[in-house]
Write a protein that binds this DNA or RNA. Sequence first.
DNA 1: GATACTACTATCCAAAAGGATACCGGTATT
DNA 2: AATACCGGTATCCTTTTGGATAGTAGTATC
Lengths: 144, 144
Amino acid sequence: MMREPLHSKEACTGSVNAVKDALYALNGKWKLPLIVTLSGSPKRFKDIQRELENITPKILSKELKELELNGFVERKVFKTTPVTVTYELTPYSSSLDKIIIELMEWGIQHRKHIISMRKNEKNQTSEVLKTLEMLDGEEVNVPV
Amino acid sequence: MMREPLHSKEACTGSVNAVKDALYALNGKWKLPLIVTLSGSPKRFKDIQRELENITPKILSKELKELELNGFVERKVFKTTPVTVTYELTPYSSSLDKIIIELMEWGIQHRKHIISMRKNEKNQTSEVLKTLEMLDGEEVNVPV
DNA sequence: GATACTACTATCCAAAAGGATACCGGTATT
DNA sequence: AATACCGGTATCCTTTTGGATAGTAGTATC
């Protein structure tokens, strides 16, 4: 299996960093669920907490700040009494749509690929079996 | 800013998981650099270690196993004396090309976006300034 | 006046990821 | 016989990430 080295070592460091930046923007346990939640409509802090069960206020606060700094979410404060704070997706957040859809499609086919790899392999190590357990459960990817 | 909720809560959990699977496959500090390294040519364990400076054998071993379990890398043992072990990308690993390129392009434009956001903002919190320090340095994304 | 709701922050803690260092069995070299 | 290279493991430690729990200031409700 040979391919063009596409990347000279020097030139490609920047590309790797760009990919890392992109991955980092979506990384962590809650960013995707948060984006999905807000894609419905703007929501208030407590509403998000209720919708994403199990997220603690500390984590929610941190994740919202990160999304805001990345320009995906705007925080709006209304001077009602008491104040109302809403979080909503920005137009810029739509720039994520394409890569999210691509990642989703790839993820779906990858699950299928892993399952078919499993069936074709006769000699499986225990690690591979661990993967397979995870396949039947929630996670697909690499085992511990 | 309103958008179609694209996702009913129930239907979309699966999609979120698919995206998470995809992100997980590329995640961690070394997977991308490893894939890039092997995209040049198959390499032996020690050769990879030399090319990716600072990776310890324990981490390299772990990462290679994960890439192998995901079907991106094939480990080949040759019965020379002493044995020679090579790692090479599989044809299946090419399925990553598209999303890697998209992530790269998005990452590049995101860096520009963040920089221009910085210039347009007058009132920056200290957290935002932290981001900006990182902009001048190596990392782009979300601050601490 | 007591309780409750909102939008958080503070402190402490656990799990996961990553790394430093040392070592192993096998072979080859001098 | 001593040293060096290969392909890793084993053990321990640090950093990062995420979470549990409690509390805060302000307002409103009963």
